[in-house]
Amino acid sequence: MSVPAVVGAEPAGTDPTPSGSRLQRDRSRAALLLARHALMTTPWATLTAGCVAGTAVLALLAYFAGTSHTPLDQTTVRLTLLPAIAALTFVPHTPLRPLAQTAPLPASIASATQIVLAVPALVVTSWVQLVIMAHTHPAIARRHLPAAYPLIAQLLGWAALALAAAACCDRSRYADLTGAIAVPITLAVIAFCWFTPGVKDLLVTGPATPRTATIAWYSIAAASLAITAAALRDTWHRYTRRPWARARALGAASAR
């Protein structure tokens, strides 16, 4: 196997087939460079804006909840976490992906690293928002708040859905608008799960038991992450065109 060119790597020298240790060294070096690249290209501003915006809205609602004596509940937290979920759709995006594919490491590693880096931000945001929500309740009532595990499962499911939508959009003709297209798709799916009779009986606590909803959301999260992994590993963009547009283009080409 020949070693493809690596940005910043030294020339391969006279030996075109390097030894195993050399290959290992090159890959390690490329991984290091890629990690730095992934860290720098992770959309921190977008992610931070999403996390902070939702938390700020929740803090505002918590203030009014205190004045109107109507404590916040998990439903409000679900709503205010939507900006963070929306920001997550902008994370798995590799600029200049065709170039990245020439690197000796799989191009999907950059996106996967970005996703891993974004997870702590989402976890911290969820924790802060749950704390804010709990503090709108009297101290004595905080022990009797509904269990958080169905909410955590639901948020994980939402995040996984958002990542799957973003990863799939990134492999489509809308790659330059990944997040902008993935956000409405994610929100539409969430709304579908939330309001559709039959579906909500399985996914929304209230009609569904906490255990059922948790299992269902973890299943959705697992399936979504599998789709995300498959989309990230896919090397091709899908420049799908409408059949009539394709036929017209072919006709024009043949006329020339």
Partner: peptide, 24 residues
């Protein structure tokens, strides 16, 4: 021009509507 700003603006535009029941 960042697309996420539009998403945030839309959420901010819709947030008072969705939480109007919390205000008297």
């Amino acid at each position: 021009p960042h697309p996420f700003v539009g998403v945030l603006a839309a959420l901010a535009w819709a947030a008072p509507f969705s939480q109007s029941n919390r205000f008297n």
